[in-house]
Design a protein around this nucleic acid. Structure first.
Length: 253
DNA sequence: ATGGTTGTGCAACAA
């Protein structure tokens, strides 16, 4: 089974890229972030005709998350934190709880958005603990908007203290993972430097000035089923790409 | 270089 996450930066602008990705990577379940559309403009039929079940939590212009799956959803819960912004959707597929999250960008140090981001991390942690997901087959994936360790950024010295690599942000993601969530990519490849996001400005992708801010975290019970986790960098090379690329988790059936 | 790029939706904001 192949489960993926991708910040598409507008589903209506990225629909053709997503279709190529699903086909070429034989994806069973995909969590998307930054749909930038309300449900009424989401391209449901495009995914249904590819034989996916579709669950969307949209919002006008900003945010928005979705889960699509080749297997029926046993349960769906939009907006698990009951926030005004569309950032979370939970689906249960084949007995696995999959929580797809678009963590806040946060903005500058000390800003209102910065504190919102840190509080959001705390709320996600509390929600997971409260529902006892760590003792089940559980996946937390999405755009975390934080690079956890120095290996996860192109230049830890230059980026120290900048958005996505501040001490407080790194502590927040470390604290969340410390409850017992395993970073699938890092678990398999402890010393490999790969990125999932490159800024649109300044030729960042060409220079490989990137950060790994998109993750798939799994609970301990899924570890025996972990086959692979890879980052599909090629989608950043296409015309009009998202600034993020997909991350794929392969589980044994 | 107080820059640079993309998307929504039509000016300004968010990323």
């Amino acid at each position: 089974m192949r489960i993926a996450t991708w910040n598409v930066n507008s589903i209506r602008s990225r629909l053709e890229h997503v279709k190529i990705f699903l086909k070429d990577n034989n994806i069973d379940i995909l969590g998307m972030q930054e749909l930038k559309t309300e449900e009424k403009h989401f391209p449901f039929e495009d995914f249904k005709s590819l034989h996916y079940y579709v669950e969307v939590f949209g919002q006008k212009a900003y945010n928005g998350v979705a889960l699509i799956s080749r297997f029926q959803f046993e349960k769906v819960d939009r907006n698990v934190l009951v926030e005004s912004e569309a950032r979370t959707i939970l689906g249960v597929v084949r007995g696995i709880h999959i929580l797809n999250v678009y963590f806040p960008h946060g903005g500058e140090y000390g800003s209102e958005r910065f504190f919102y981001k840190l509080e959001f991390y705390q709320k996600i942690k509390n929600y997971i603990l409260k529902n006892d997901f760590l003792n089940t087959d559980f996946i937390l994936m999405g755009d975390f908007n934080v690079a956890k360790d120095p290996i996860d950024v192109w230049d830890p010295v230059a980026l120290n203290g900048t958005i996505g690599f501040m001490k407080e942000e790194r502590e927040a993601i470390t604290d969340l993972m410390s409850v017992g969530l395993i970073d699938a990519f890092r678990y398999l490849y402890p010393d490999v430097q790969e990125f999932t996001w490159w800024d649109y400005t300044g030729g960042s992708f060409r220079r490989n000035w990137g950060m790994r801010i998109d993750y798939i975290l799994i609970s301990k019970s899924l570890l025996p089923k972990l086959k692979n986790c890879y980052i599909e960098k090629t989608f950043r090379k296409l015309e009009k790409p998202s600034d993020h690329v997909p991350v794929v988790l392969e589980l044994l059936d």
